[in-house]
Design a protein around this nucleic acid. Sequence first.
DNA 1: TTAGTTATAGTCATTTTGACTAGAACTGAT
DNA 2: ATCAGTTCTAGTCAAAATGACTATAACTAA
Lengths: 238, 238
Amino acid sequence: MTVYSSSANVSERASAAPSLAISTVIFALRPSESSGRPTLWLPLVRRIREPYKDLWALPGGPLTHVDSLQDAASRNLRETTGLTPSYLEQLYAFGGLHRSPTQRVVSIVYWALVQPTEAALADESENVKWFRADKVGDLAFDHNAIVEYALRRLRNKLAYGSVAYHFLGEYFTLAQVREVYEAVLDTRLDPANFRRQLKSTPEIEETGEYLQGGKHRPPRLYRFTGRPGLDPDNRSTP
Amino acid sequence: MTVYSSSANVSERASAAPSLAISTVIFALRPSESSGRPTLWLPLVRRIREPYKDLWALPGGPLTHVDSLQDAASRNLRETTGLTPSYLEQLYAFGGLHRSPTQRVVSIVYWALVQPTEAALADESENVKWFRADKVGDLAFDHNAIVEYALRRLRNKLAYGSVAYHFLGEYFTLAQVREVYEAVLDTRLDPANFRRQLKSTPEIEETGEYLQGGKHRPPRLYRFTGRPGLDPDNRSTP
DNA sequence: TTAGTTATAGTCATTTTGACTAGAACTGAT
DNA sequence: ATCAGTTCTAGTCAAAATGACTATAACTAA
């Protein structure tokens, strides 16, 4: 906590640096209650103090002096939700003057992907709850805008980059990859054409194994080889 | 400036919030000395104090409490270089622990494009100088990494987005657009094929006018209609 | 054994891309 | 006035990518 000397006058105080916070938008796929198909969800935490007391908000906290930005995001993620992300990337720094009614706050926001297995055993409690990404309701601060932007970024990254695999485990079927695309982009894709595209990308490796236990013809399992990394300080699996 | 009371002990001091700074990577096209073809340049400022005294660095300064992040970038840009950008977008927040030897600094970095007319009449002095983007030498802090990342982002945005036109004036020829691509991506493109692509994008509008005064057949002038805007707080022409 | 379902390969027409040709329209030199 | 040089611009053609679709393989459940 910053401590001002008693001689600090008003103007010195007013020009003090804005406080810095870290928040994270965490995405995971979970089966929809209705259709059972995977859909996009994110965890939110309930605010237990003013401002915006009792409203839902993105997990976050102040930046501690011992952590780099990414470490801070990673730590905060773990401490508030118990999750370990398979992907973590900086989203944007939000620094509008009136984001918080009480003080000037600059939030550096990260976005993360977690695998369904992780997401399934995530802490859910009175104050931590998962919401469908398209139905989060009214959030605290400017967090609705942040979630919206994170969704845009996720969709964009999915269409170009190689981020889809971080929703899945090490081995996956091509149909599972297609389901990720369908859930995130909210479209239906032709299975045959989609599979042709994936098979032409060199980073997807055929394994000799097949997914057993399904109701129909057992699909072949694949593996993703290749790193995402575009960020300047990306360590890809934080 | 933050003032600490004499009673602030070491741990309080150590946990004080990191200071926040704004920097900008400014790109412009200028004719190469050798070939005369446009190439990518950026202005740097000489540091007049420690650390890294006398080394070149990105223009920047502390975040003042009256400005939003983008306003701060815009203001700083103008005050240090005299430039008015045609495009300004947040690049990344750099917050490694040891970016500055003297204190913990989090820098929110923007990148900007300015038109050649602007760049030509930019202040250049003892302490402000333009460098070729691929030959900046050793810069202060982690600014080499930042410039590199900004270049990556510019190239990426150019390949997909609609950012090329911000290097040019309101009216331009298709060959000029091609020269932007060639300069930034450092390749040669087939004029006929490139032109076919541009003509198939609806945001490029044919005007009735032609660029006169050239040495050869006068090319038709075009106009770009359509806004870039992907950023959450983008005001596109700041 | 059969019906149902998903996995997977392949076909075919359309669109997009890359390499290239050729005429149009200007300037500057002869 | 003519011609050489250059860029602008439209067009051709084969190769590659895409979208819609068909057909067969391989499993489960009844």
